[in-house]
Design a binder for these strands. Structure first.
Lengths: 157, 157
DNA sequence: TTTTTATATGATAATTATTATCCATTGATA
DNA sequence: TATCAATGGATAATAATTATCATATAAAAA
């Protein structure tokens, strides 16, 4: 069993137990969505989750995906990455707030390993007097791979 | 003439000259929108700008506001603060990317004076190898004023 | 196991910010 | 002043998400 698979299984179980603990029904649809979420490391959109879901349960509705995401959000078992006027992206692999970096060429979203992120909240609280609830740090740019491609085909975009 | 008024006038002129320089037509609608944007320090929504605009030019259309904002965005004369599934907010007073802090109680958006923001981009570029285009830092929490209110009326929200 | 009941699902309609379309109008240049 | 591309206004289209509601069902109780 690979490392990813162990992690995947653990995340699935964590989410499953959280739903159980708060007396949400463990329906086949929800179980399938938990499985999909625990396996996808690419910050999928609701539509992506729905596509995967249809492979297993062809009669499901997109509404069910949205409703399940709402529940998981409330339980803090999924992190919502909001985008203006395009689909939100979801991270249930690491549901704790953390920064991301988005490649504007290939649309890939990667976790940004920024050590100072955790102390940011305290710094800002101290400085502003706010009771800080969320700190959202989202970076956009061109990833190294796409930079290479654009060097090989200058002016191609 | 107060400090704010001087600043307001200067920003209006900067935007006016920028449009002129790039051969955009200086229509009454655009001039009115520039004036509104230069005077509003509260990060207004398109709808807020439209409301103000109607006082002066009652026949204007919301589409005109959106179109003008699109032009100003392209010229980097207005900063767009995106919100998922609610109206974007716009800052033409300080159009350069900068962080904000949002009060979840009174909905006020304030500029966050965070000195380390400017070096963040370089740090992240160095660490990730990305060609960084934008760094978006948006904080949410309860402002000192609203904390006081919530102390006076515990459990009121 | 059967019954009960609150909750979830699925189909569909509604919502809402924004964008697209298209024709009449107009600012800017010659 | 004449010309013409750019703009404005009215309206339709778009698209992600949320609301609605009748039916189905998971899970607790009997």
């Amino acid at each position: 069993m690979g490392k990813d698979m162990k992690q995947t299984t653990r995340r699935f179980q964590q989410m499953y137990e959280k739903l159980k603990k708060f007396h949400y029904k463990l329906t086949p649809q929800r179980i399938a969505i938990l499985k999909i979420l625990s396996e996808r490391f690419d910050h999928p959109r609701p539509e992506d989750i729905y596509d995967d879901l249809q492979q297993q349960l062809p009669t499901t509705s997109p509404a069910t995906v949205y409703k399940t995401l709402t529940v998981l959000k409330k339980l803090k078992e999924v992190l919502e990455i909001q985008y203006s006027h395009e689909s939100n992206r979801y991270d249930a692999v690491n549901p704790f707030p953390h920064p991301h970096i988005f490649c504007t060429a290939c649309q890939k979203i990667t976790d940004l390993d920024f050590s100072e992120y955790d102390i940011l909240q305290k710094k800002i609280a101290l400085q502003t007097g706010y009771h800080v609830e969320t700190v959202c740090l989202e970076v956009a740019g061109v990833c190294p791979d796409c930079q290479k491609i654009s060097e090989s085909f200058p002016g191609s975009r």
